[in-house]
Design a protein around this nucleic acid. Sequence first.
DNA 1: CATGAATGAGAATTCATTCAT
DNA 2: CATGAATGAATTCTCATTCAT
Lengths: 210, 210, 210, 210
Amino acid sequence: MSVDEEPRRTRIQERNRARILEAALGTFARFGYRGTRVDQIASDAGMSKSNLLYYFGSKSEIYKAVLAGLLDRWLAPLRTLDPEGDPRRELTAYIEQKLRFSANEPEASRLFANEVMQGAPMIRDVLEGPLKALVEEKAEVLRHWAKAGKIRDVDPYHLIFLIWATTQHYADFAPQIEALTGSGIHDDRFRKGALETLSALLLEGLLPRA
Amino acid sequence: MSVDEEPRRTRIQERNRARILEAALGTFARFGYRGTRVDQIASDAGMSKSNLLYYFGSKSEIYKAVLAGLLDRWLAPLRTLDPEGDPRRELTAYIEQKLRFSANEPEASRLFANEVMQGAPMIRDVLEGPLKALVEEKAEVLRHWAKAGKIRDVDPYHLIFLIWATTQHYADFAPQIEALTGSGIHDDRFRKGALETLSALLLEGLLPRA
Amino acid sequence: MSVDEEPRRTRIQERNRARILEAALGTFARFGYRGTRVDQIASDAGMSKSNLLYYFGSKSEIYKAVLAGLLDRWLAPLRTLDPEGDPRRELTAYIEQKLRFSANEPEASRLFANEVMQGAPMIRDVLEGPLKALVEEKAEVLRHWAKAGKIRDVDPYHLIFLIWATTQHYADFAPQIEALTGSGIHDDRFRKGALETLSALLLEGLLPRA
Amino acid sequence: MSVDEEPRRTRIQERNRARILEAALGTFARFGYRGTRVDQIASDAGMSKSNLLYYFGSKSEIYKAVLAGLLDRWLAPLRTLDPEGDPRRELTAYIEQKLRFSANEPEASRLFANEVMQGAPMIRDVLEGPLKALVEEKAEVLRHWAKAGKIRDVDPYHLIFLIWATTQHYADFAPQIEALTGSGIHDDRFRKGALETLSALLLEGLLPRA
DNA sequence: CATGAATGAGAATTCATTCAT
DNA sequence: CATGAATGAATTCTCATTCAT
């Protein structure tokens, strides 16, 4: 539809933009928008502040660009939930994908959390538009499964929130988890343990079955 | 031996300190440490910036005081988990308390999240000390229940993380939840729904029982 | 002549004023006028800032009071120079008195130096009035001695400056002297050495006599 | 080995740094460290405060730089004292150099005095290290001269202090000297008079020779 | 006499951004 | 493309002083 006028960019430009965005993700995630200094992004990206501002005219422009790149990756897993698939397999796969995201892109997860916690000033539109639509669509899938007797009849929103919360927790609260367990989601064995426990609890529940 | 010398404070001092801490909680939770201006705390607390600094010598001092007051309330619910009690009831009660905390003190929850996400610079000691000890103690309770056949044998840490994550999510990601559902944990009916869904899923699981 | 309306003061008042002036001398000498905080004077004097300001309405008032008390003691030795006396004895006695002052009131010496170095904003009147008159009077004594062949014919002003400079140096540059010699004018033996060397050099000169 | 990596500086940088240091010397000498406002240094140096802080990150950094530049010039004269030379000539030359320094750089002299009077917080190392070594070396020269019968046997340290004190006095106490004599060391004739009187007194003594 | 409470005018930095080269 | 130079608008914190009790 909308032919996003991608400006022509040289290879150097592409590389530098990428560097900047990567560095920015790191500091925005850690220190929040206000807590991040353009200087630091620049030095993390290995260039001068002036040069950085040649690529992105302002701090908030960088922030927006980082967030924009983020949202797609954050949303992707949910899209894969297949109405035709087996609930057990689908949900386990979904959880796994989300855990992988937390493992591979913890900073992205934290930045997203940060943005939402501050009232989602930059991505409110996305939340209320595309995200809301997607979630409603997937909620319908869950309701459908429930009607078909494949899963219990629970509120699909709370269910989705549960999956988001638990999987993202491993990225967002990593320092706490590290302090308590000495490990974290980046570790393969730890991640397997998390996946098993989460899917078991979600699917089978904690109480012994008859 | 050493009686922690609580400095004597007049009523005015008590009142003003309380006001400041309350106002500070709000802005720190929303904008993070760096994003918060002392000016704003002062005006939220209804006093001049200078007067505020008469009570707390610096911004970071306020921050520390807020966090210190926070931790107790954040930790309290877990302490109540009773080894002698019935797992179903105990866990449901725990979830309910945590949800209430999210409902009543969403800002405290967010500030805690914020602090942890930034690497817990101020409360690392608490996490690695008292919190770690408490969590290990309660993990033992869960293992004990499992051995007694009262609950399934799942990793107690992941179980605790699941409860933390899901309950806190309603406070920390409130803007997102609000955008998607039009409501939030502050709403009684919403909170009941959350509690039911959460405890049902946790205890019984999603899949239908035979 | 001028009946300085000494306000009636209770004993407590007298004591507190004295305490304040003493404490103030210490910090003004060390940190200068701007570098001194009223707070610190108060705490050094063992009272609250508010109470201190009950005695002296402002910082500069304290400063003036300290300086006023100082000048008399600083000037006193010169007054004792007796035109009728033997130059050798008179000058040695003068040097000794100045060295004693440096030993006993190094802070007073430093504060005086400080004030002068900043352009003597507070005591310019004294310098240009009473001090100038006194110095001119004593210069005349020296000229008189010279005419009488009791001392060489040297510029009396430079001679006086030499004595001031050398004797005050031991107080004003005490940290340097301490660093270089490990001792200082407060030490009796050190002071004797200084007195001997100074008076010997001043009176006899460095070069061997025939 | 380790070549002190002098950061490369553009001409503009050199010029601005020099301007700043010069302006800073003036105000630090006059008002002390605390009494000096960055604002004022900047306006004296003819630039904006922000720009000044682009060159020196903080007030104390400026202060340190000024002091560092100072010490060399302050020390230089003493280095020239030649053990092989004639005492009379050497000492007269030394006094003359010191008087010239007081005449040409009175602010430097006052700043040095100020720093020492405050306890030499920034240059203690230099005093206890290089300066101490140099002074001891020159004291040895004086002792040597005394043994050779070229000068009287006086404590070399007090002799050095005497020269320092008297020569620096003309810079440090300039306002007082001005108030008393109407002139000062900056004036050529005045300086000549000071030099003559000082060297005469030091070398020949005040008392008439037989 | 003495202290607690409150304030406002600074003063030092910080930092995003603009300008020049 | 890239960097150095410069700026001005915040923002934190200091400190003498006033007010109330």
